[in-house]
Design a protein around this nucleic acid. Structure first.
Length: 298
DNA sequence: AAACAAACCTGTGCGC
DNA sequence: TGCGCACAGGTTTGTT
């Protein structure tokens, strides 16, 4: 999404702003958004965790959060707006910025970056961003070792690490070969290194693939195109299937931190299977998939 | 402090 | 065909 904004939004000037639903500008108001955006030019497109941040030439910053069902779309001004378009900003090149969100959990706000701590406190309190910030096993250790909860809940905690959601949390733990309920204080240094590598690896690959568009096509890019990473999900949404990595375990679905959670019963055990002639999961080479390329394993 | 539930909304897919 | 229910990418708030 940030890349799409960098292409379609940066350098443009806002001519006119329409607010449909007040709810999506609830942090301030429709009047405030209109005043802060009208006549302003978009300077850049940044991101912290799941927060999209577009600095304006006024010195203030436009923040968009998509939450569960939000989209940002750009289309010619005058073309029919999709249902649930709650904010539309006409731009100086004849296009229109649209914030579309059926569930209205998402939001749009312009704030003063000097007052971020009071105006957008959750943004100020975000943890390390593994893509935007320096991130390695030492950073991960420092952040994760402060608690001793389960791994899945820790990965989803935006105050610790910013930007990992439910899909990528599952995919990261699968790549790392770690059980979602494994306690963070039981990891060896090797585990921690594997986890740090998996966080960066999964996120980077998913970004390059344009993200994950599920069946209902709620996530699409600024031009309405679907991502392709869903074809490479190894566990998310694949309960009951055979694991494409080990070819041996079944994908299980459990509920962790009130989120559906998927993992391979063989590659991701709470305790490593030892002795008794059982070798346990050893292959840690995620790119090697036997007999299966993309899509469903049958 | 941390674990858990509920709340915020709408749409879709399923079983009956 | 219609109805009720479960469930969905996220985050905050309130309760144990």
């Amino acid at each position: 999404m940030r890349r799409g904004l960098a292409t379609a939004f940066v350098g443009r000037r806002v001519v006119e702003v329409h607010v449909g639903r007040e709810r999506v500008v609830r942090r301030t108001s429709a009047d405030a958004l209109r005043q802060d955006l009208t006549g302003r030019r978009i300077v850049s497109a940044d991101r912290r965790g799941k927060y999209l941040l577009c600095p304006l030439d006024s010195g203030r910053v436009l923040m968009v959060h998509l939450r569960m069902s939000g989209q940002v779309r750009f289309a010619p001004h005058g073309s029919p707006r999709p249902a649930h378009t709650h904010v539309a900003a006409v731009l100086d090149d004849g296009t229109e910025f649209r914030f579309v969100d059926p569930r209205t959990f998402g939001e749009v706000v312009v704030f003063d970056p000097a007052r971020v701590a009071s105006d957008v406190p959750e943004l100020a309190r975000l943890g390390v961003d593994p893509i935007a910030d320096p991130f390695d096993v030492d950073v991960l250790r420092r952040v994760v070792r402060r608690g001793r909860g389960g791994l899945k809940a820790t990965l989803l905690d935006q105050h610790r690490i910013a930007g990992i959601g439910n899909i990528y949390g599952d995919e990261i733990l699968h790549r790392a070969g770690l059980h979602p309920l494994r306690r963070t204080d039981t990891l060896s240094f090797t585990h921690e290194r594997r986890l740090a590598d998996s966080i960066v690896g999964v996120l980077a690959e998913a970004i390059e693939a344009g993200g994950s568009t599920l069946g209902d096509a709620q996530y699409v890019d600024v031009a309405g195109r679907a991502g392709t990473y869903q074809h490479r999900h190894r566990v998310y949404g694949r309960a009951g299937e055979r694991c494409p990595t080990c070819g041996r375990g079944r994908i299980r679905r459990i509920v962790v931190a009130q989120r559906s959670t998927h993992y391979c019963a063989w590659c991701q055990q709470l305790r490593s299977p030892r002795s008794a002639g059982s070798t346990g999961p050893t292959s840690r080479t995620p790119s090697v998939s036997i007999g299966v390329t993309d899509g469903r394993a049958h």
